[in-house]
């Protein structure tokens, strides 16, 4: 620990612990997941920064969506996102979640993921290298520190709109609304 961080820890332990303890749900939707093993194992060792895979969404606060999002997986993504505990951060990995990528004209792929759940940051590229994940993480740290990673607040505020977008695809969802 840097000595100059002690003051920050004392001032806002919540923010600092959120920064340095990112437990991630790796949502293995597409080919992006292939970049995750090197980043959490010996070569790049994400655990240095406190990033480890979490066994389930209740224990995680970082949501990595790695690859294209089909209509079917979107449901699971929404469910998982809603089950994660606040504060939670979402990162779209690769170009597919951003704009559809190479599936830009596919009939059953979601083009803009942030219409359905809020995304705090994107990692562009097809595929991004593991280093890009770390760059993203450092960016996320900055965002957390400046109180700008507020996707979950946005989701709560504009829940009606998000829910309407979700229901536009599925007609009706199995589960009741998260917020009233």
């Amino acid at each position: 620990m840097d000595r100059n961080q002690i003051g920050k820890w004392l001032r806002s332990p919540q923010k600092m612990s959120n920064k340095y303890s990112l437990h991630a749900v790796y949502f293995c939707t597409g080919c992006g997941i292939i970049e995750i093993p090197p980043s959490i194992t010996t070569r790049w060792d994400a655990e240095r920064f406190g990033i480890i895979p979490a066994p389930n969404p209740r224990q995680a606060n970082l949501f990595l969506i790695t690859g294209y999002v089909s209509l079917k997986t979107l449901k699971a993504i929404i469910r998982t996102y809603e089950q994660m505990l606040e504060p939670k951060y979402t990162v779209g990995f690769g170009s597919c979640p951003i704009n559809g990528g190479m599936y830009w004209d596919s009939y059953n792929t979601i083009k803009k993921l942030d219409k359905y759940i809020p995304i705090d940051g994107w990692i562009a590229g097809c595929m991004p290298r593991p280093e890009a994940i770390f760059v993203a993480v450092t960016h996320l740290w900055t965002l957390i520190e400046k109180d700008m990673a507020t996707g979950y607040i946005k989701y709560r505020k504009n829940y009606k709109q998000y829910r309407a977008n979700q229901e536009k695809i599925y007609g009706s969802l199995d589960w009741p609304p998260l917020y009233k």
């Binding site: 959120n18 010996t42 240095r48 505990l85």
Partner: peptide, 23 residues
């Protein structure tokens, strides 16, 4: 695993983070 590994106080950070989350 031939990794550098987390700082030894990492579980403490985790616990602080858990504690501030909305369960």
């Amino acid at each position: 695993h031939w990794r550098y590994g987390p700082p030894i106080y990492q579980p403490l950070i985790d616990v602080i983070r858990y504690f501030h989350q909305r369960a």
